[in-house]
Design a protein around this nucleic acid. Structure first.
Lengths: 338, 338
DNA sequence: ACGCATGAGTTATACGTAAAACGTCGGACG
DNA sequence: CGTCCGACGTTTTACGTATAACTCATGCGT
């Protein structure tokens, strides 16, 4: 863990390649046609790669007086709408070599802070969700202080982790449904290769394995309402006794399940009980309101940040899972004929 | 529009205050107790304020080799969940003098880009939603190239604007409902002082004013499902003939209206037709699926970015409103007894 | 009268990069 | 034969800041 081994500079690369710093700058900046020979350029590129050289952005920005970065100010982060706005802007920006940074105007974040204070340069550390798996390899490239959100604590990474106690949430769901009398379960699982989702499946299976006479089937669906609808419809159209309880990996999947059940002429909760996980606004927008597990996102974010500050101070963050709560609403009831 | 008049540096402040650059740095950095007299410090502060001095972050970061900025990597921006994560993290970060920058892992934004490329330093320009009104004054402080999203084009600001053609969307909604035979309308208006929402009210009133025998009432609600529910319930419990069509300022308000109607024992669309605006996932999650106006958020973002690039190149962005489309689903039908 | 601490500043330097200005060396051209 | 030019680099400088090291009175105890 040589965390603070100072990063290589263009001068280090120059030394390694046996050229001047200026030559490195020319090669890295792709402005060397006619100024540096192909063989030398290749030597520089190899040295840069070997050393893991990455230009210091602060220095570059200072030198150029320009950042190719743009700020997008949005009312808040809660809307899917502005997520789309960001996506579109970022695509065009990328085409022009620009980056986009988000400034969600604060909502209870102390006094009105300078909107640019949060849009400053490079990074001291990283907080990463395990769901952003694609970005993680790149993050590993730099060895920045890292905190993982909802990642396997036993993972080989050694990074600090902060987790929601999803396993306990699933136990609470299972216990609630078992207490109502349910025995035949369908697990509507998100088709995403991420630790949080694996935990759901594992814990539900474990809990039901301890109950004689219980049955568990699983249907996989992409994380969208439409995907969940069709997966649920397919699963419930199959042969065999119909499950009486539908445990969904998150609220969005549950919304899709509602639509499938409606099409099949089944009522919630009279014919089938449904549970979600997240407790988004969506959970109370659908009818009947969804029994789900409330995840305290803000606490999650706070703990993640605190853990990162610990790492930055050389402390080892205290490992503790954030508790979650079952919220019982109108989508669960005793199974039919009970 | 002296846009490119180079920003003042600490040396300029020093000159104006008649001290050395180092003194300015000490005063601005709040590390002057016992190093600079109170009177001199005050003189420096006044000079800095008069010149509109703001420290160059690139230089500061380069000097300190540290940024007090942290990156939050999230799977995408679409979830309310991660919005909460951001809020929590940003609050703690602010308490510790840190900023938070978002890196939504790209979704179809070219090849897997360096996750840090989008998290670079200061700003060449700003794209701002008119809904983030609180942040705008601060933005005005720096005179960065600015593009406004959905703001009054006749605004006194003079900034470039890119707008969705919301007025036309409302016209389409009104025409659709009028064609179905509706004459008594209730406008469920968002209680937000922002141009986009003013347009909705104005345009609906204008369209209905041209139809003899039509009636329009208005109910105001905060932008939340619960707020919309109680506002709708209150409005429909009043005296007088009940409206047969409910025009909502956005989909979320429509979801709240659904709940109110359900409580009042009214069916959608048999008793009351409902329309939304946005076309979020929520619109198809509720039952019946919502007739609404689709806003193409990505195009919106793209146009905003393109306009900013125009401004940066010294060109005047072409003014054009982005068209929107009515999406007819199951929440609208002829009024009862028609 | 001398040393010494303290207040109030200033001077000088380094951070890492980009690029303008400057060599050098061989060959082509008049 | 002089010289001009292109290929291939190197030396140097500037970007704006933070801070360590230095200067220089002034007051004070002995």
């Amino acid at each position: 863990m040589a965390r603070d081994s100072t990063r290589p500079t263009s001068r280090d690369v120059a030394r390694a390649a046996g050229v001047s710093q200026a030559a490195v700058s020319l090669v890295m900046g792709d402005k060397w046609r006619g100024r540096v020979s192909e063989t030398t350029a290749e030597r520089v590129r190899r040295a840069a790669h070997d050393l893991g050289y990455r230009p210091n952005l602060a220095a570059r920005n200072l030198r150029l007086g320009r950042t190719r970065t743009v700020l997008l100010v949005v009312p808040a982060l809660t809307t899917e709408f502005f997520a789309g706005v960001y996506t579109g802007a970022a695509r065009v920006a990328a085409e022009h070599g620009f980056g986009v940074v988000l400034y969600p105007s604060p909502e209870g974040i102390g006094p009105a802070r300078d909107p640019f204070a949060s849009a400053q340069a490079a990074l001291d550390g990283v907080i990463a969700s395990s769901m952003a798996a694609d970005a993680l390899t790149a993050i590993r490239g730099d060895q920045l202080p890292l905190v993982m959100l909802d990642s396997d604590p036993a993972g080989s990474t050694g990074a600090a982790t902060v987790n929601l106690d999803i396993a306990d949430g699933i136990r609470q769901v299972a216990d609630h449904l078992l207490a109502l009398g349910h025995r035949r379960f369908l697990h509507l699982a998100a088709d995403v290769g991420s630790w949080t989702f694996e935990v759901r499946a594992r814990e539900l299976a474990a809990r039901l394995a301890a109950v004689p006479g219980s049955a568990l089937r699983t249907a996989h669906a992409p994380l969208s309402i439409e995907g969940a609808r069709s997966a649920t419809e397919a699963a419930l159209s199959g042969p065999g006794p119909r499950p009486t309880a539908l445990v969904c990996d998150d609220d969005k999947l549950a919304a899709g399940a509602y639509k499938a059940l409606r099409r099949l002429g089944l009522r919630v909760p009279e014919d089938v009980s449904v549970t979600g996980l997240d407790d988004l606004a969506l959970a109370t927008a659908i009818d009947p309101e969804l029994t789900t597990v409330r995840l305290d996102a803000e606490t999650f974010g706070e703990r993640g940040m605190r853990a990162l500050l610990d790492v930055l101070d050389g402390r080892v963050p205290s490992r503790d899972d954030i508790p979650v709560d079952l919220v019982v609403r109108g989508s669960t009831a005793p199974p039919p004929g009970d």
